[in-house]
């Protein structure tokens, strides 16, 4: 243990903290998907990690499509046009996957009033199926004789390897906080994540449809008696979670630059942890949980070494839940008065 590595030098401390906030913002965006679905259905959508993972591929594919496969190193400014297209593609891709999961893994079970545990198993199944489908995409392409045409996308015989965005985005320092140089990529990640979350918060609290979502979350039967179409509410909940995951995937690819068929797993577990830490079902809790988790695991890796990063994150989760079992901001979409 080396507390000096974190606290001995203020600039190091800022470095780890700001770095943690950046990755934490991505956790928070993905956490929103878990928390919204839980708020409405009291159900953990374990397939949400794959919703995110498909978004990361959409980003990389957009760059391959518009730039080609040649490795390049661009500034953020130069990458912006393609990044915007990639953002739209990732949001559409993730939203489509989320809606598919809702339609085929959940709705048949909900309509039959199946126990929540059955839906949970169905979600885990959907998660594996989606991840494996991505890992076997070269075989699927081969069935249709498209593996040559689509070689750059399906990576024949290497579909399970790391798949990188050909364009790596070089961050540039913009200004300093203490000794830490905040880069343009950091700033875009944090600001974009905050804007998305702010917009979602407004949508849920201020719009008529948002009020319908809160009503279903608080009392589904009474909501039906008010004329709320619960099927539509559930769909929109999945859709919004998917859009947020697609945005998170774009930010993740800006920062990390590569993905693979199991990239959703660890990030999904972290985002789920963030949601639980903040109080699952609570939108602002997801933000707080995400940022806190990002910062804590960075501090943990400074003090204990980076191999302990995940251990620190999950020990923190256990400790928080021991003291506050319903999470930092408490459970439920709108149960705490919004």
């Amino acid at each position: 243990m080396d507390l000096g590595a974190l606290f001995g030098n203020f600039n190091n401390f800022l470095d780890f903290t700001v770095g943690g906030l950046v990755i934490g913002a991505i956790y928070a965006l993905v956490a929103l998907g878990y928390t919204m679905v839980y708020g409405v259905l009291q159900l953990i959508n374990f397939a949400h990690s794959e919703v995110f993972m498909y978004g990361t591929f959409a980003v990389a594919w957009t760059f391959v499509l518009l730039h080609g496969t040649g490795d390049a190193s661009w500034s953020l400014g130069r990458a912006v046009p393609i990044l915007l297209v990639a953002l739209v593609a990732a949001m559409l891709m993730s939203a489509a996957i989320a809606l598919l999961v809702e339609r085929f893994a959940y709705r048949p079970l909900i309509n039959k009033n199946a126990p929540k545990l059955i839906a949970l198993i169905s979600a885990i199944g959907a998660s594996f199926a989606l991840a494996e489908a991505m890992g076997l995409r070269d075989r699927f392409a081969k069935w249709f004789g498209l593996d040559d045409n689509l070689a750059n996308y399906v990576a024949p015989n290497k579909a399970r390897d790391v798949y990188s965005n050909p364009v790596s985005i070089q961050p540039h320092g913009l200004f300093h906080i203490g000794g830490y140089s905040v880069t343009d990529v950091d700033l875009v990640v944090v600001v974009a994540a905050l804007v998305m979350m702010f917009a979602l918060d407004i949508f849920v609290r201020r719009t008529k449809f948002g009020r319908g979502i809160r009503a279903v979350a608080q009392d589904p039967e009474a909501a039906a008696l008010m004329g709320v179409n619960s099927t539509r509410v559930v769909q929109v909940t999945f859709l919004v979670g998917g859009l947020m995951a697609g945005a998170a995937a774009t930010l993740y690819m800006m920062k990390i630059g590569s993905t693979r068929q199991n990239a959703g797993f660890l990030l999904g577990v972290k985002a789920f942890t963030a949601a639980v830490m903040g109080g699952i079902g609570n939108l602002r809790g997801a933000l707080l949980g995400g940022l806190l988790l990002g910062v804590m695991e960075n501090w943990g890796s400074a003090v204990f070494g980076s191999e302990w990063k995940d251990v620190v994150a999950f020990v923190l989760l256990v400790l928080i839940l021991l003291v506050r079992p319903s999470g930092l901001l408490g459970e439920a979409l709108g149960k705490a008065r919004a």
Partner: peptide
Amino acid sequence: GCFPGMTVLENLDMGAF
């Protein structure tokens, strides 16, 4: 079946959904 997390006004507004 009132919505516990909503105000009286919000509940009435839900009635007019």
